[in-house]
Amino acid sequence: MTSIEPAAGGRAPTRLFLTGGSGYVGRNLIRRFVADGVQVVALARSPETIATVSGLGAEPFAGDLFDPALAQGMAGCQALVHAAADTDHGAGVQARLRRINVEGTRAVLAAARTAGVSRVVLISTESVLLDGAPLHDATEDQPYPRHPAGAYSRTKGEAERLALAQSEPGFEVVAVRPRFVWGRDDTTALPQLAGAVRSGAFAWIDGGRYATSTTHVANLCEGVVLALARGQGGQAYFVTDGEPVEFRTFATQLLATQGLTPPDKTVPGGVLRVIATIGDALAALSGGRITGPLSRQVYATSAVEVTLNIAKARATLGYELVVTRAQGLVELEGA
Score class of each variant (00 low, 15 high):
176 V>W: 01
302 S>C: 12
323 V>R: 14
232 Q>F: 01
151 A>I: 03
327 Q>R: 14
287 G>V: 00
113 R>Y: 07
42 A>R: 11
29 L>S: 14
2 T>Q: 08
8 A>Q: 03
127 S>C: 12
262 P>C: 09
114 T>F: 00
88 D>L: 04
56 L>D: 08
151 A>N: 02
274 V>F: 02
174 V>S: 14
63 G>Q: 05
128 V>Q: 15
39 Q>N: 02
188 T>K: 15
110 A>T: 11
271 V>M: 11
263 P>D: 09
297 Q>M: 14
38 V>P: 06
158 E>D: 13
229 A>Y: 04
325 R>T: 00
122 L>P: 10
2 T>V: 14
216 H>K: 03
18 L>R: 09
149 A>V: 00
31 R>S: 04
148 P>T: 03
2 T>W: 08
231 G>F: 00
60 P>W: 00
181 V>N: 11
286 S>I: 02
327 Q>E: 14
105 T>M: 05
2 T>I: 11
82 H>G: 03
239 V>G: 09
139 T>Q: 07
4 I>H: 03
6 P>L: 01
255 L>S: 00
54 S>K: 15
80 L>N: 12
104 G>V: 04
45 R>C: 00
310 I>V: 15
195 G>W: 09
79 A>C: 10
108 V>Q: 09
318 G>E: 05
128 V>E: 06
104 G>Y: 04
184 R>A: 14
285 L>D: 12
101 N>D: 12
30 I>W: 01
53 V>N: 08
159 A>I: 01
293 P>H: 03
82 H>I: 02
179 R>A: 07
37 G>P: 08
51 A>E: 12
90 G>K: 13
323 V>H: 04
229 A>N: 05
137 D>F: 06
23 G>L: 05
286 S>G: 06
305 E>R: 12
287 G>K: 01
303 A>N: 06
180 F>G: 07
92 G>N: 08
121 V>N: 03
110 A>M: 10
229 A>F: 02
206 D>L: 04
32 R>F: 07
156 K>Q: 06
230 R>P: 03
61 F>R: 15
